[in-house]
Computed example of a mutant assay.
Amino acid sequence: MTTDASKSSQQTSAAAAVDNAMAEWAKLPGNATTLESWRSRQAQRVGKGIGFDPRKDLLPLKVRVDGLGSSLGRK
């Protein structure tokens, strides 16, 4: 049985693993520029009153989540 404290610790570890994976992704050549360009385009859309449409506005990323917290669990 998983306690609330254990779940919280697992969530914290998983979030840290994802944060680390994203930081590593951003270090790769061109990825930081790609992300900044996407953010800029999204800000312009918001400024024009155009809503976010996840069917076409999501930025696809491929990252590998390793280390402590990388196993997000299975039931």
Rank of each mutant, 00 (worst) to 15 (best):
S8Q: 14
Q42I: 04
A21H: 02
V46G: 05
L35G: 07
R55I: 00
R39N: 14
P29N: 11
S40Q: 13
N20V: 00
K7G: 02
A32P: 00
A23M: 07
T3R: 00
G49M: 04
L68M: 04
G67C: 03
L59Q: 04
K75D: 13
A26Q: 09
I50E: 13
R41K: 13
A5V: 08
A32G: 00
R64K: 11
M22N: 06
I50C: 01
Q42V: 04
D4W: 06
V65F: 09
S9R: 11
G49D: 01
N20L: 04
L28D: 06
A14L: 10
L61K: 15
L68C: 02
A23S: 13
A14E: 05
V63N: 05
M22S: 02
G51M: 05
F52A: 02
K56E: 08
M22W: 06
A15Y: 05
Q42C: 06
V63D: 08
S9A: 15
A14R: 15
N31S: 05
D57P: 01
I50S: 05
D57C: 05
T33K: 12
G51D: 14
E24I: 07
A16W: 00
G67W: 06
T2L: 14
S13E: 15
E36K: 15
K56Y: 02
P60K: 11
L68D: 13
G30K: 10
D66E: 11
S8H: 09
S70R: 04
T2I: 12
G73E: 09
E24C: 05
F52M: 02
R55T: 06
S9E: 09
R39Y: 10
Q42S: 07
W38D: 03
N31I: 01
L28V: 02
A15H: 09
A16S: 08
A43V: 12
D4K: 07
L72R: 13
A21N: 06
G47S: 10
K56V: 13
N31E: 07
T3W: 01
A15D: 07
K56F: 03
S9G: 01
S13C: 04
K62W: 10
K62M: 10
A14N: 14
L72V: 11
K75I: 14
S9W: 01
G30I: 02
L35K: 14
A26M: 15
R64N: 04
A5D: 14
S71N: 15
T33W: 00
M1Y: 07
A23G: 04
D57L: 03
R74S: 14
K7N: 13
W25M: 06
Q11G: 00
I50Q: 10
P29S: 14
M22Q: 08
T2H: 06
I50T: 11
S70P: 00
S71E: 10
V46P: 00
P54K: 11
A43Y: 11
P29D: 15
D66K: 10
L58Y: 06
Q10N: 12
K27Y: 03
R64S: 07
K62V: 12
Q42R: 15
S70E: 02
A14W: 04
L58A: 09
P60E: 10
T2Y: 08
A23T: 12
G69Y: 09
T12A: 10
L28Y: 01
S70Y: 02
L59F: 10
W38E: 02
L59V: 11
V46M: 10
T34M: 12
